[in-house]
Amino acid sequence: MSASIAAAVTPRPSGLPGRIAWHWRHDPKAELWIIWYAMVFFYILFGIVFVLLTHVIPPPQPYWDPPRVVQWFNDHHYGLLSGFGIIFLVTGLVAACNALIGYSIWRMSVSPAFAYSYIAIYSLSATPGLLLTAIALTVGAMRPERNPDLIYWLYDMAIMCFDGTMGVFLIGTLVWMIAILIDKNNVFPKWFGYLNICNLITEFVVAPAWVFKSGVFSWNGTIAFWIDTVVFAIFTVAFITLLKRVIVRDDFGTGPLPDGDARTAIHPEA
């Protein structure tokens, strides 16, 4: 779609396979695009697994007693196993997301230390936020004959890991936000920097889920879950779209990113 100008250098064939082949050989940004698509693929897969297969989003009731929880595991036995099987295979893809955001920070005028801290924090946060949840729920689903109290404990731990361990994300978001706001290379618009504050606040809003077993502040409550999730979804869509813009605008230089397609800036005569 945005390749029309570079096509002046090497003719670009029509048709999807031809275009993909052309980008593969001639597009200097092919590597960045692979990472970007890997990230999109991961988020879509994540949505499918957590919403459709395992039914962890929206989360089941926090006030259930052990027998009801065992029943939940039985109801979703195959969904849990197949869904988390997929997660175990592709969890590594979170690296694509972290790497691309790290790259965007590295492209800014700020110290690369910001990029390193971001990558370190978000790599860490995938462990409680994603892997522990998946492991605990898989263990619960694989051992249906176990003592219901233990199953109940796994269930509680899994969902609290998923919903409650937001502190790591919080500092990561803060690092990204500061980088965006002090950046002089115009990599991200300032409004997105401010939007990070909203995302950061959502990490606090889930905190009451530790206290409440029902109501709007519980782990599937209107405020602690639904409003938070909407804010997070808006934030996620915004940053995926903006990362795409960053790749399009990137001129592989060190100065400010051009406003439009970088190729217009590199070949102004085209």
Partner: peptide
């Protein structure tokens, strides 16, 4: 940009 943020925050608080 700050106004966009203020309006977004206003919406989040409105929902609360």
């Amino acid at each position: 940009d700050m106004w966009a943020f203020v309006m977004f925050e206003a919406l989040i608080f409105s929902s609360y």
